[in-house]
């Protein structure tokens, strides 16, 4: 059922929704900002623009909001959507920035030229931009974050994490996952998160460095490979070399988790958490004979 087809002057429309309905929003250019409230309804607000209409279409399974140009592509429109946090969310755009705050269901975001910033999400959370950076925080579930030409960041999130970009850095902070994969062609990788027993962690880059923060008490079998890079560790490890200076492995603790670190021509470094280093340094200041464990 088509609820609204309006030339864009000033849209402020609220549509009731039922549990199980999915929210789909598409806009050619501008911004889509989604926030939450505790009503079972979706509010759509749009700023004035050119000869562009906003269509709101409701079916049994979804509520669709999209911008349409009357002649040619739609002009730039800023959409502000307020929705119940339980709704699954599907955002798409071309020259569109996307931001989502507070949702607690699955989220899919795709844009070409635009930044993506999501806080929240559970289940399958898939974020993708070609030319913009992608940032995800506070999510749980199967998390997939992709960019092509910019950075990717995931923080304070848990689950299975896949992060990928071609020409950008990947930063994973306070991530708690049993499976974490990060890959860049021309960028640095920085992982500062849990290393779970039995977990699998794979980080690879062609032309960048890899820094992994290893919490004290971690158990991991670590495999390091490089072609023209270097390896360093803040704490002692016993290397088993299979190719001198290029490929080696070692075990931290019981070796329960599997960690693969690969950089074709960048450095690979293992460090201790900053808080641990600070405490250790203070201990050293008090006791100069204190040994590293």
């Amino acid at each position: 059922m088509l609820l609204l087809l309006a030339l864009l002057q000033q849209i402020d429309s609220t549509v009731p929704v039922q549990r199980g309905q999915r929210l789909e929003v598409s806009s050619f250019a501008g911004e889509i900002a989604v926030k939450t409230w505790n009503r079972n309804a979706v509010r759509v607000e749009a700023e004035p623009g050119g000869r562009t209409s906003v269509e709101i279409d409701r079916s049994a399974t979804s509520l669709t909001v999209k911008t349409e140009g009357r002649r040619g592509p739609p002009s730039m429109v800023d959409l502000v959507i307020t929705a119940p946090s339980w709704m699954a969310l599907d955002l798409s755009g071309v020259n569109t920035d996307m931001s989502v705050t507070g949702m607690r269901g699955p989220i899919s975001v795709e844009t070409v030229q635009g930044e993506v910033e999501v806080e929240g999400g559970q289940g399958l959370v898939s974020l993708q931009s070609v030319q913009g950076s992608v940032s995800l925080t506070g999510a749980k579930g199967s998390l997939e974050v992709h960019s092509v030409n910019e950075d990717v960041r995931v923080s304070a999130s848990s689950g299975e994490v896949t992060a990928e970009t071609v020409n950008g850095d990947i930063t994973l902070t306070r991530v708690d996952g049993s499976s974490v994969t990060a890959s860049s062609v021309n960028g640095d990788l920085d992982y500062d998160g849990a290393i779970r027993n039995g977990g699998r962690y794979a980080f690879s880059t062609h032309n960048g460095s890899i820094t992994v923060t290893v919490p004290p008490g971690s158990n991991a079998a670590v495999s390091v490979s490089t072609f023209n890079g270097e390896f360093a560790s803040e704490f002692p490890v016993t290397l088993t070399e299979t190719r001198k200076g290029k490929r080696f492995s070692f075990t931290i603790g019981t070796g329960s988790a599997q960690m693969t670190l690969e950089s074709f021509q960048g450095s690979i470094e293992l460090v201790r958490p900053r808080s641990y280093r600070g405490a250790r340094d203070r201990d050293h200041d008090r006791d100069p004979d204190h040994d590293e464990h």
Binding site: V148, V166, N167, H206
Partner: peptide, 20 residues
């Protein structure tokens, strides 16, 4: 701009492939 970005990134990957 999108075409330029795609082509730049394909060039990056081609360079990485050649090095590998």
């Amino acid at each position: 701009t999108t075409v330029r970005v795609l082509e730049q990134n394909l060039t990056l990957i081609d360079r990485a492939i050649a090095q590998a």
